[in-house]
Simulated scan of single mutants.
Amino acid sequence: MPKRKNTSIKDYKLKSGKKRYEFVISLGQNSNGDRVQVHRRGFKTYAEAEAVFNKLSQTKPDNFVKQKQIKVSELRDLWFENYKTQVKESTANKNKQVFDNHVIPDFGNQYVDKITVAELQKWADMKAKQIVKYRDAINEFNALFEYGIRLNYVSENPLKRIIIPKKTSRPRRDTEHNVYTREELNQFLEVAKEYGLVQYTYFKLLSATGLRKSEALALTWQDIDLKAGTLSINKTLAYGLDNKTIIQPPKSPKSKRILPISDSLKEVLIDYKQKQKIISNKLFHTIKGTYLKMSKPDQWLKSIYAKDHEEKVKYAKTHNLKEPQPDLRHITVHGFRHTFATLLIAETNVKPKTVQMLLGHENIQMTLDIYTHVNNKNKEDAVNALKQLNI
């Protein structure tokens, strides 16, 4: 057996009789004049202890990171107090939700410097199977480690060493199916009109402008110039800290825009304004005149689909039909924005830059992705048409 040169590394025995290694190393004085001395123990082999000893021997006193100084939940709270003052309140709230739902349950009580690369790899792989936006969780946790390095709580970021999963097993909703044809849209709006004026006006507005649901909920009558036929988007609803509803600037600079209003939408808005009980300058509001919650449109949509089903079942029974007519195909609230964009591109000669302006996309690539989707659909239609023609 080769002679062990480092006399600072000593062996000792556990109660079970197993041998372990330990050492004490002095790094010198830090800038505060304090002597930095490190004691490490529990190594299974001499080589393992020597590797850590050699690494510590290269560490300057001021750069030394003590073990088990702070837990993930404690570091997150420390970091969040600073972070929330630098971003939109809605962004801070989303960040907090990501941590609360996907990081804290798994690592909240662990010391930051004791988390291993293997643990993080297993966690990242698991999140990729559980959620679509798994990269958000990884990125937020990565930012926390970087913050820990700046505060000298950890010496390195172990997340930098994992292999980021390439895809999730839970695919995003297929945009192609989360959109209505013009006929389907007309059928939906007829049902919505029977359901209620507020709900009909809201979904007519989304369908005719491509607004995001939060932008439409934030509208006031001052934002609409019925005489000029324009609509101004200058604010949006969002979830703030503690999930309270707040008003803030639009999603991005490009989201702040002025849109033309179609004659059809103009008629609906005039009728809505005349029939609405004016207790607020907001287009859509509670009985007390306050902004509605962000979840309200989803509740409306669910109720409209339920009404459609009930009416068709009732009609079938009344007319002694064995089966009721098919229900309206279900899409999401965001699907009405997709519907507007798809019909706009498919039925007009509009250019991508114009679509980008109307939708308030931050970059043209988002708009081009919609163009690609529509063009691919046109190709499929062309192939099917030629097959049917069969000349």
Rank of each mutant, 00 (worst) to 15 (best):
H373S: 10
V87D: 13
N54V: 11
R182T: 01
T175G: 02
V154W: 00
A192L: 03
T181V: 01
T286R: 00
L217H: 03
E267P: 05
Q248V: 09
T367F: 02
K71T: 13
K266V: 01
Q121Y: 06
K55I: 14
I246R: 05
Q222Y: 14
D308V: 00
M1D: 02
R35K: 15
S262F: 11
S264H: 11
V65A: 12
T245P: 00
S255R: 03
K66S: 15
I278Q: 11
P249H: 10
K379D: 12
I270D: 07
K387Y: 05
D308A: 07
D225W: 09
K84H: 06
D223T: 04
Q199V: 07
D77L: 14
K296A: 07
K251E: 11
A216N: 06
I224W: 02
M357T: 04
S73G: 00
I163M: 08
N363P: 15
D106L: 06
K256C: 08
L144H: 02
G360H: 00
D125W: 03
A51F: 04
N6M: 08
Q299W: 06
E146D: 11
Q388R: 08
Y46D: 02
W123K: 05
R4P: 00
K122Q: 14
L292E: 01
E183S: 09
F203A: 03
K18M: 10
K322R: 13
K167H: 09
Y111L: 11
D308H: 06
N178H: 04
D136H: 08
D136I: 05
A92N: 10
A51M: 13
S232K: 13
E74G: 09
E190F: 05
Q325V: 05
L231F: 06
D242N: 15
Q37G: 01
F53C: 03
D225N: 15
E119V: 06
K5R: 13
K251Q: 09
Q274C: 07
S8Y: 14
E176S: 09
Q365M: 11
G42M: 11
I149A: 05
I287M: 09
N349L: 13
K167Q: 13
Y134I: 01
Y134L: 04
Y12G: 01
K19W: 07
A385Y: 10
I138S: 01
G42Y: 08
L344V: 04
E119T: 09
G335T: 01
Q67D: 14
K282P: 00
K66V: 08
S252E: 10
V72M: 14
I163H: 08
I304C: 04
N109Q: 14
L359H: 00
H319Q: 11
Q248C: 12
V117P: 04
Q69S: 11
Q222H: 14
E48N: 05
T7M: 09
Q325K: 15
W79G: 02
